[in-house]
């Protein structure tokens, strides 16, 4: 079996950490990945930029509409994920608009950031 683990927290809480605390947490995540990897459990995973960097797309009547922010309605539930390589956000939006369920629900496009030993971009 494969399992997807989705990570949630309150960004406001994270924003209160100082750079050192934040970098420490990021280093913990890096060693967590290392552990899982050495045990053969880790397939893929990445931290995301804050929710303010999100773009939500929908396709209705063959028309793409792009909106800022996470716009999933409460009656929509998470159904899957695609990790895409794209030149920039515009290409990512075009690729995501081809994901079939974009015609029924919505697809949130969020940039992935890199875990670093220090100097991690935090929340404001």
């Amino acid at each position: 079996m494969k399992y997807l683990c989705l990570v949630y927290y309150d960004e406001k809480m994270m924003a209160q950490m100082n750079q050192q605390e934040w970098d420490t947490l990021n280093r913990e995540c890096m060693s967590c990945v290392d552990n899982l990897q050495s045990q053969g459990h880790f397939l893929s995973g990445a931290p995301l930029h804050p929710v303010s960097t999100a773009t939500t797309i929908r396709v209705r009547n063959n028309q793409l509409s792009t909106m800022d922010g996470p716009f999933a309605e409460t009656k929509e539930q998470l159904a899957g994920y695609y990790l895409l390589e794209a030149r920039d956000l515009n290409e990512a939006i075009q690729l995501a608009s081809k994901i079939p369920p974009a015609r029924y629900g919505s697809v949130e496009v969020r940039p992935v950031r890199e875990l670093q030993a220090e100097g991690n971009v935090g929340y404001v």
Partner: peptide, 17 residues
């Protein structure tokens, strides 16, 4: 300021579509 960080972090390209 937030709009500029989004342009940078989300990779909004500087181009005419």
């Amino acid at each position: 300021v937030r709009a500029k960080s989004k342009i940078r972090d989300a990779g909004i390209p500087y181009e005419v579509p």
